[in-house]
Amino acid sequence: MIDISEPGFADPVRDAQGCFRAVLAAMSRPGSVHPITPALHPPAPLHPATAAVLLTLADPETTLWIDPALSAASPWIAFHCGAKTRAAIHDARFVLTTKFPDIEKLDRGSDEAPEDSATVILQIERLEEGPSLRLAGPGLASPTDFRATGLPADFPTIWRANHALYPRGIDLILCAGEKIASLPRSVEVS
């Protein structure tokens, strides 16, 4: 049984602000890893970082698709965020998952409104470990290395297809334990 009464942020205003700044810094500097400071004890299998990102960004004005592997936490998410859950992954602005999704199936925005695209919140085991990727693009003074577990082996190829759509495309927020990192669509991965 999942207890939806597991609390959300202890201080909703300040904790959300602090978490947002971490996400903003992560999105501004692709691949940089940021700690999520508020102490949070979400129901398994959600990691604190994943829960914090959801509490910060999702609300009744947003649509959310939840990976069946995380469905045990759905009641908690519904209670604390109130986001409208969607059965079809294409209809969701936030895609919460433990497995990198098929980006062809996601909303990648339109030419006139590329911002109307999905943000994938990917929960993985570890950041700063795993296969090394080379990142370049806005936010980076020079090409930089990035390591994460749980990305598909052919991730650079997948991401190249996403980047080729620019300015359309999806953005990725990676959450592991109490840390986050991000890959916006503008970044090149090799």
């Binding site: 999105m27 960004l57 947003t62």
Partner: peptide
């Protein structure tokens, strides 16, 4: 905040 993140991404 959601708008800001998309702005940074594009």
């Amino acid at each position: 905040r959601r708008a800001l993140l998309k702005a940074v991404a594009i």
